[in-house]
Computed example of a mutant assay.
Amino acid sequence: MDKNVESTEIIAEAIPPMGFRMIAREFKKDRLAIFSLIVLVIILLTVFIGAIVVDQDKVMTVSILDKYAEPGGNFILGADEGGRDVLGQLIIGARNSVVIGFAITIITSIIGVSIGIVSGYYGGVFDNVVMRIVDFIMILPILMIIIVFVTVIPHYSVWSFVWIMSAFYWVAKARLFRSKTLSEGRKDYVSASKTLGSSDFKIMFREIMPNLSSLIITNLTINFAANIGIETTLTFLGFGLPTSVPSLGTLIGYASNGDVLANKTWIWVPASLLILVMMLCINYIGQAFKRSADARQRLG
């Protein structure tokens, strides 16, 4: 009986951890990733719960008497040039920036990964046509085109901005995953699946795509952080979200005024620090997910 128990324990230890167990194992090895995950969760919970509680209309109401009110009293983080609460704008703006960054990342990843895998798998004329379209979009001055769309589109909103960004930022993903699929398509497991009569859809999205999971996770992480940065930059330049919608870029945009930059740091520093912390946390968490995906692929 004892031998059976010992053999069972040995077998259990020999079985490689999969799924959440493997992810948890990689996070346990990296204290910085655990700390980053905790910090990011706290930030997101605070931002999203706070955005539900905070009244956006009240926050964005102009109060000339409170212009550039310093932190303390009625305003924990002070007020901007319109007498609007910086803390309220920070909470709502962070929520908007995170939602926009996440939405753009998911939409562009679905489009880019799918088109890249299909194009790389089938190859031939279809691949040539798709890649020429990708090449054409990539040589366009995308930021200038986005600025034009933002300027001319009537009834411009957050989701208008998301769709405009998503329309152009999938092409790099398509090219990347197309090249990886070309190399994966030559491997024995793909040939074996074709011989066994597996459908093309199953081969592409149930066999090839899982083997690209490490690259997908890394790409998602980098692009999530980058998309938040792009939204913030465009808003800072005045071509992002509408002026009535709070954003981290809106708060940082006040720093373009020399007096605010030097003497009224409570307006733009909190947003800058929040962006920096979120970017670092997302990158450290992404590295841990990448290691877990790499380990899973090595173990088959």
Rank of each mutant, 00 (worst) to 15 (best):
I228D: 04
T265F: 05
N128V: 13
M278L: 05
I285T: 06
V62Q: 10
G50P: 05
D66W: 04
Y121G: 04
F224H: 07
I106M: 14
D66F: 00
G123W: 04
W268N: 04
I137C: 05
I43P: 05
L274D: 01
G73R: 10
S166Q: 03
Y284C: 04
L182H: 02
G238W: 04
L176Q: 14
M138Q: 15
L40W: 00
L261T: 01
V152S: 06
E6Q: 14
N223E: 15
A14H: 13
D30M: 14
I252H: 06
L261M: 12
G185S: 14
S109F: 10
S36D: 06
T195D: 15
V152E: 00
M22H: 07
I117D: 03
F136G: 08
A94D: 03
G120I: 03
I76F: 11
K194I: 11
A293M: 12
W159E: 10
P154C: 15
V5G: 08
C281A: 15
G240N: 06
Y169N: 14
A33S: 15
T151Q: 14
W163F: 14
I216W: 00
S256H: 13
V53S: 10
S199Q: 05
V277K: 00
E81A: 07
V98M: 04
R25I: 00
L37Q: 06
L274M: 12
V148Q: 15
F161T: 05
T232M: 03
P242K: 04
K290T: 15
A226E: 06
L87R: 09
A103L: 08
S183L: 09
V54L: 10
G50F: 11
S109A: 15
H155W: 13
K3A: 13
I43Y: 05
R31M: 12
T218W: 14
A69Y: 08
G124H: 14
V86E: 01
G19C: 07
I15P: 03
K58M: 10
R132M: 11
N223R: 10
N227T: 09
A262M: 15
I52W: 12
D127F: 09
M131D: 00
L261D: 03
I11Q: 11
I217A: 14
E207K: 11
L280V: 13
L215M: 10
I76W: 10
W159Q: 13
D80L: 04
R206K: 15
E231V: 12
N283R: 00
M60P: 05
N263R: 04
M209V: 06
M165Q: 10
L215Q: 12
V158M: 14
A79S: 05
Y156A: 01
Q287F: 14
I64N: 11
M144K: 03
E81T: 03
A295C: 03
D2N: 13
L237P: 02
G101A: 14
L241I: 08
I92N: 01
I10H: 01
I147G: 02
G286E: 05
F224D: 04
Q89G: 09
A293H: 01
I92T: 02
V47Y: 07
L140Q: 04
G73L: 01
S166L: 10
I115N: 06
K173V: 06
L274F: 13
V162D: 06
A69K: 07
Y189C: 02
I115G: 01
S7P: 04
Y169W: 15
P210W: 09
V245P: 07
I117M: 12
L77W: 00
E9N: 12
I111K: 08
K290I: 09
